[in-house]
Every structure is written in C-alpha cells, then in structure tokens.
C-alpha cells in the first residue's frame, strides 16, 4: 500500500518545486505559524487584553521581562494600560488578518468578476469598465482608502469598504488581461457555440483559467491590505479603540517612544513586518513558478 507509485499531479509538481526553495518554504511556515497563533490567541495568551477589569494600572509601561502582579512574565513588556504586549500583539494580529482577508476576498471576487465580464462582452462595456479601472489605478491606493475611511467613519465595515475600493482594481486589471487572452482561444469559441449561458462560460470556463496570475496578485494584495489597514489605523482612521489592530497598537505606543519606552510600538511593528515580508516572499516564489517566461 505504502509503496504505491507517486502520481505526478500538477499540484504535486508545484508543491515539490515550491519546497525546493528553502527561503519560500521557511516564509510559508512563518505565515502558517502566525495565522495559527492569531487563531488560537484566546487560548494561548496569558491575558485577555480587552478585558479592562483584568488590567492593573500598576503594571503599566513596564519593560520586557517584567513579572506582573498577576504572576506571569510580560516577555515583551506592558503598555500604558498595563496590558501585556505579547497578548495584545496576538489579538491584534487576529484583527489585522481577519480584516485583510475579508477585504482581499471581496476585492478578489468583485475585481475578477468585473475583469472577466469586461473581457467576455468586449466593445462598449469593456471600454467603460476598463476606463474606470485605469482612472482609479492612476490614484494611489492609500489616498483612496484614506478619503473613503474619512468619509465613512470608523468601524470594521467602513474600513473593509475602503480597502476593497483601494484594491479591487488590481484584480480587475489582471483578470481582464488574462481573460482577454482566454476569450480568443478555441475552447471558449467551442463553449460559446453550445447553448451555455454567459455566466456559465464566464465563471466555469474563463475564470478558472485566469487563476494563476490572480493568485499572485492576491498574495501581494493581502500583504498590501495588512500594511494599508495598519497605516489607516495608525492615522486613527481605522477601527475603533475597543478592538485594536496592530496599527493601532503601534499608534498607541508612539507617544511613549519619545520617552524611550520603545517596546510598546516596536514589537507590534516587528510582528507586522515579519508577517508582511513572509507573505511577500511566498508570493515572489509563487510568481516565479507560475511565470511561463522563467520556465526552464
């Protein structure tokens, strides 16, 4: 049973090639580990950082390694409310990842649909959709997100809306490029000659074949969404203070940095950077593997 010959599926070939890059494999492990830590945060952190009644003011602004009044060591120190930084980081990661993944998923769906529809119908519809997308891409994403977050106010859904608006255009652009190529191929002509509905051709035939470039854009955009969310929260335009993401933790620590209490801002920042760099490294490897021009 165990020595059954290995089947060379495309997924396995892809995985084997991915595995051969130690840097990318290490980055993937880091990403998975961080996500696991974030998901498990309520069970593994020594303290619930949002339970205000559990916070002791005497423990506030203590350096890393301080043993607090609750009896456990604050490995990364405490913030201005006596909150354990390590616990706050894990909870903050939870919020950051949740927001960015939701925004990324919506932006992916919206952008891919728009791009594929534009490529499928062509003509006026294509011109109209792609003109709007091009126009939007000429403005920097952070500016759009900033303006929207300001207009819509604080909260989870305004923030997600701002992120989606800033990012869907990248997905639409990529899908349109890939879908326009697929559209002219024979198998789509064949599908069109059968009485299949337009939506079936778009979603079952064109879109699945546009997935490789979309996956690459998706990894990059998730990393961007995390950075963008942190930036908006840092500027006070993101989530309300009751549910701090990493950006807000960094913002809260900013004022104490000038008096040398670096740990309140620096450690959440390091967590943020490790996550973003790891996702980018995985994305780089996936892009190289999916790029037919680099195929040997």
């Amino acid at each position: 049973m165990s020595n059954r010959p290995q089947v060379e599926t495309p997924a396995r070939v892809f995985w084997n090639e991915f595995r051969s890059s130690h840097l990318a494999l290490g980055a993937l492990i880091v990403v998975v580990l961080i996500i696991a830590l974030a998901v498990l945060a309520p069970w593994i952190t020594p303290q619930d950082p949002y339970e205000l009644s559990k916070l002791v003011l005497m423990d506030a602004r203590r350096p890393p390694g301080y043993v607090g009044s609750a009896g456990f060591t604050h490995w990364l120190g405490t913030d201005a409310q006596g909150r354990d930084i390590l616990s706050a980081i894990l909870y903050g990661l939870r919020v950051s990842i949740q927001i960015s993944l939701t925004a990324g998923f919506i932006a992916f769906s919206l952008g891919a649909t728009l791009g594929a529809v534009a490529a499928y119908f062509g003509g006026r519809i294509e011109t109209l959709i792609m003109r709007i997308i091009d126009l939007q891409l000429s403005f920097p994403a952070i500016l759009l997100a900033l303006v929207l977050a300001a207009l819509l106010g604080q909260g989870k859904w305004p923030l997600i809306t701002a992120l989606v608006t800033a990012q869907y255009a990248y997905f639409a652009r990529t899908t349109h490029g890939a879908a326009a190529t697929e559209r002219s191929k024979d198998y789509i002509e064949a599908a069109l000659s059968t009485p299949l509905s337009a939506s079936r051709v778009v979603f079952r035939h064109i879109l699945p074949n546009c997935l490789p470039p979309l996956i690459v854009v998706a990894t990059v955009q998730i990393a961007n969404a995390i950075a963008l969310e942190a930036t908006l929260s840092f500027l006070g335009l993101g989530l309300p203070v009751t549910e701090p993401s990493l950006g807000m933790l960094i913002a809260n620590g900013f004022q104490y940095m000038l008096s040398g209490r670096y740990w309140i801002s620096i450690y959440p920042g390091i967590a943020l950077i490790v996550l973003i760099v790891a996702i980018n490294l995985v994305g780089d490897q996936v892009r190289d593997q999916l790029n037919p021009r680099l195929k040997r």
């Binding site: 942190a230 940095m257 000038l258 943020l272 760099v277």
Partner: peptide, 21 residues
Amino acid sequence: IFGFSVPTFWIGLVLIFTFAV
C-alpha cells in the same frame, strides 16, 4: 526589498527612536 515591504509609518517611528531619541 526592505524598503518595499516595511510600512512607511513604522520606519518613521524607528528613525525617530534611533536618530532623535
């Protein structure tokens, strides 16, 4: 690669902490 990945605002904080504080 560092300049690309790390958010601007965090680099700003580190610069302030290192060179100013």
